[in-house]
Amino acid sequence: MSKPVNPYVVLLLAILLPGAGHVAIGEARRGLAFALFVLLFSFLTYMTTTPEQSFIGRHAGGLFIWALSIPDAYRRARIRYSIGSRL
């Protein structure tokens, strides 16, 4: 069994790109699902807002899902790291 990835590296990857933190810890399917939902909700909020809204307002749904994925990836990495360090 390989050594788990440092949770802070996972946190950085999750902040930089949605789903990348999950992919780094070996949960590619979960990471890709988060990335897909970021795109989907960004598109939905973009299509349901007016052009007068800011960039953040027009993509709020996707940014919200991205914000949810960051602590999820970090928490899962921290759990794997603590279990891996005991073995």
Rank of each mutant, 00 (worst) to 15 (best):
L13V: 13
F64C: 07
G61Y: 00
V38Y: 00
S69W: 03
A77R: 02
L63D: 13
L40D: 10
I65D: 03
T49N: 07
T50F: 08
A20C: 00
R30F: 10
R86K: 14
A33N: 08
D72A: 12
G57C: 04
I25Y: 00
Y46F: 09
L39F: 13
A60D: 12
V38G: 00
A60H: 10
F43N: 11
A73Y: 01
T49S: 08
A20S: 00
S2T: 08
M1W: 11
L40T: 09
S69E: 04
H59Q: 09
S82T: 12
G57K: 01
Q53N: 13
V23L: 03
I83D: 13
I79L: 14
R86T: 11
E52H: 10
Y81L: 05
G84K: 10
L40W: 06
A73Q: 03
S54T: 06
L68H: 00
L17W: 08
H22G: 02
G19Q: 02
R76C: 12
P7M: 05
E27R: 06
L63P: 06
G57H: 03
L36M: 14
H22V: 00
I70L: 07
I56R: 09
A35T: 10
P71I: 05
A28D: 08
F55C: 12
S54G: 06
T49R: 06
I65M: 01
P4Q: 09
S42P: 10
L12G: 14
V23N: 01
G61F: 02
A67K: 01
A67P: 03
L40G: 14
G84P: 04
